[in-house]
């Protein structure tokens, strides 16, 4: 852009503050995250996750180019039904996501507020016509975007490929509800992680500290849950302290049953602590973690706004 104005010029456009500032914050935060040095390993993680979905896509290409079979057709021949391969892959996929999601949230959500606090950016933000929840919503969307890229985007891709190559194309529309159910566990864990990550980020002033603290919080809750469940209270309900276990329990319940598959991947026989967790307790756990994170986050940002 060429600028040839030597003097101050007035600007006669119309200002429309409000929700558009949320989009501006989210967009800028995503750009800031993508510009960081450590984005390469994280992008690698996201790529790896999406390769799972690409594997199914390659089978589709194989079918269309060489006349081979799609996953759906193979499943039909085995008497499994079109939906079951999706459920199998998704169940395994979500377990893999548990490993990557903490990495992604620690690296993306960790610096979002901590860096602003360190750079004392709050007066710049809050002297603008934005409310504290505009600021939080922008940061939240940015954090959630990266998490959803690994928790929801691949299942959607898998589902679309699977369904579009099934012998009966009409099944796609009939099964959209299934897609929503398949994505729900990923959305839930993303919401919990983004909330917790931002809440921790708002407590510290260094992005590295925030990143380490997020990892620490995840491992501590994951470690404390079985200790409480087995050693202290001798009640499996306490496993719900770990939101990943709660999410797993919800995922097990809402994914379609797989009666004709080996027991190791059946809903009822999924190994681990989630098996014994009542569904209501699992939902309560997710709600409590999200609520606690949001309350902490709101209180922190209100305070930061006042003391800037």
């Amino acid at each position: 852009m060429t600028v040839d104005q030597a003097a101050y010029r007035t600007w006669d456009g119309v200002l429309r503050p409000g929700w558009k500032s949320v989009a501006a914050i989210a967009e800028t935060e995503i750009r800031r995250v993508l510009a960081r040095n450590w984005m390469r390993p994280m992008l690698g993680s996201i790529l790896l996750i999406n390769i799972v979905a690409a594997g199914i896509l390659s089978m589709t290409v194989y079918k269309q180019v060489l006349g081979g079979q799609s996953v759906g057709e193979m499943a039909e021949q085995q008497g499994l039904g079109v939906i079951q391969p999706f459920a199998i892959v998704l169940r395994g996929f979500l377990l893999q996501v548990f490993f990557f999601a903490p990495v992604v949230v620690a690296l993306t959500a960790g610096p979002l507020i901590a860096e602003d606090r360190r750079a004392r950016a709050m007066p710049l933000y809050f002297s603008r016509p934005i409310r504290h929840w505009h600021y939080l919503a922008g940061k939240y969307i940015a954090s959630l975007t990266f998490l959803l890229m690994i928790t929801v985007l691949p299942p959607i891709g898998m589902f679309m490929v699977e369904m579009s190559n099934s012998p009966d194309q009409g099944i796609l529309l009939d099964r959209l509800a299934l897609l929503a159910r398949g994505c729900l566990p990923g959305v839930l864990i993303s919401v919990v992680l983004a909330t917790g990550g931002l809440a921790i980020s708002s407590l510290v002033e260094r992005s590295n500290t925030a990143t380490i603290a997020i990892f620490g919080a995840i491992f501590i809750t994951a470690g404390m849950a079985p200790i409480c469940a087995k050693l202290i209270f001798n009640d499996p309900t306490w496993n719900a302290l770990d939101p990943f276990v709660a999410m797993q329990a919800i995922g097990n319940d809402i994914l379609p049953p797989l009666p004709s598959l080996p027991s190791m991947i059946n809903v009822q026989d999924v190994p681990g602590r989630a098996k014994d967790l009542p569904l209501a307790v699992a939902w309560t756990s997710i709600a409590c973690w999200t609520g606690a994170g949001l309350v902490l986050l709101t209180l922190r940002i209100r305070k930061v706004e006042v003391v800037t």
Partner: peptide
């Protein structure tokens, strides 16, 4: 503002 402040990155 008075304080040193900036939007990092």
């Amino acid at each position: 503002p008075e304080s040193e402040c900036l939007i990092p990155g």
